[in-house]
Design a protein around this nucleic acid. Structure first.
Length: 309
DNA sequence: AGCGGTCAAGTTGAT
DNA sequence: ATCAACTTGACCGCT
């Protein structure tokens, strides 16, 4: 059974997550700034519940939460703990309500911090900021019952074995809350599945298999081999990523994402799997719903409302 | 009210 | 040495 996942935002549905900028908040007094941020966090908790309702209603079994759900939470100057916000209690309560809803409807949720999280950086301040970011996202993940906080391997710095070793050692600095949710994903320029599988074996961190990245940056493993080995790193339902190239596989910049998924890009070797497939496509929910229709027409078993993994 | 420039953060590799 | 690519639109300050 395949569970399809939607990433972060909507193309057509009027569900919006609010953001702000450090420049704007930095101009305000601390208290005024916190009041503004508090309102944004509250609005985002409401938007998340709407997003989950949409997914439940349309049989989309997984939703990825935007990493800016609590805007500027880890900013070096403007960052805050949620209990510093005027509506802090209410915010946590609303996120916990999202968690209850997701659990009741069998929806999976996950996080994917952006490229600034580099656990194997050679710069200690970058690693420290990355750990801080993972702790923040894992706190929200706990509120909403998300089981995955997924990151990339980071940089190679001219020496992948050393870089992977630094990655492994940084894990020891995470709380249980963060470490138990952390996963690592192959990317399209540095780390392949083959590079990451030994790290996963050594640390117990699951591998999120991005088949599009693997096609852009192959490593000698077939898709079936990479899928099998990635799935074996999971003690629960595995997670994978799928995209189609912007202008076809022969076109320029195949690593760039298309608006929709070409159903021909869906790996045949996923057919017998129980798997969450996050759809990374610019047309967002429209792309997920179209893929859902096409897979169903092709006889693939899909699930969006079954009990949690 | 509408417009357009701007946005916290890291790393790689193309030019 | 510089800069786009990752995500991409929404915000904010100016008229």
């Amino acid at each position: 059974m395949i569970r399809l996942g939607l990433c972060c935002t909507f193309a057509d549905e009027p569900i919006k997550f609010a953001t702000t900028t450090a420049t704007a908040v930095g101009r305000l007094d601390r208290a005024v700034g916190l009041a503004k941020l508090s309102a944004l966090c509250l609005a985002n908790a409401d938007a998340l519940l709407q997003a989950l309702h949409f997914c439940a209603q349309r049989g989309i079994g997984c939703f990825r939460v935007n990493c800016q759900i609590l805007p500027l939470a880890t900013h070096p100057q403007l960052g805050y703990a949620v209990d510093e916000l005027p509506a802090g209690d209410q915010i946590v309560e609303k996120f916990r309500a999202c968690g209850s809803f997701a659990r009741a409807r069998g929806l999976r949720t996950c996080f994917h911090p952006d490229q600034f999280v580099v656990l194997n950086s050679q710069r200690p301040e970058v690693v420290a900021a990355s750990l801080r970011e993972l702790e923040y996202q894992s706190e929200v993940a706990e509120w909403i019952g998300a089981d995955v906080v997924n990151i990339h391997g980071g940089g190679a710095f001219g020496d992948k074995p050393s870089a992977l070793d630094r990655f492994a050692r940084a894990l020891d600095r995470l709380s249980d809350r963060a470490r138990s949710r952390l996963t690592v994903e192959n990317d399209d320029r540095v780390y392949t599945p083959r590079d990451l599988l030994p790290l996963c074996a050594a640390t117990g961190i699951p591998l999120v298999y991005d088949v599009h990245h693997h096609r852009c940056h192959p490593d000698g493993l077939t898709e079936a081999e990479a899928t099998a080995q990635a799935c074996a790193t999971w003690q629960r339902e595995p997670l994978a990523h799928l995209s189609s190239p912007l202008a076809g596989w022969q076109g320029p910049g195949p690593q760039r994402h298309h608006d929709y998924i070409d159903v021909g890009d869906f790996p045949e070797c996923w057919r017998q799997r129980t798997l969450t497939v996050e759809v990374e496509a610019k047309a967002k929910e429209l792309a997920v719903l179209r893929l859902q229709r096409e897979l169903t027409a092709a006889g693939w078993p899909l699930r969006g409302d079954s009990p949690p993994w």
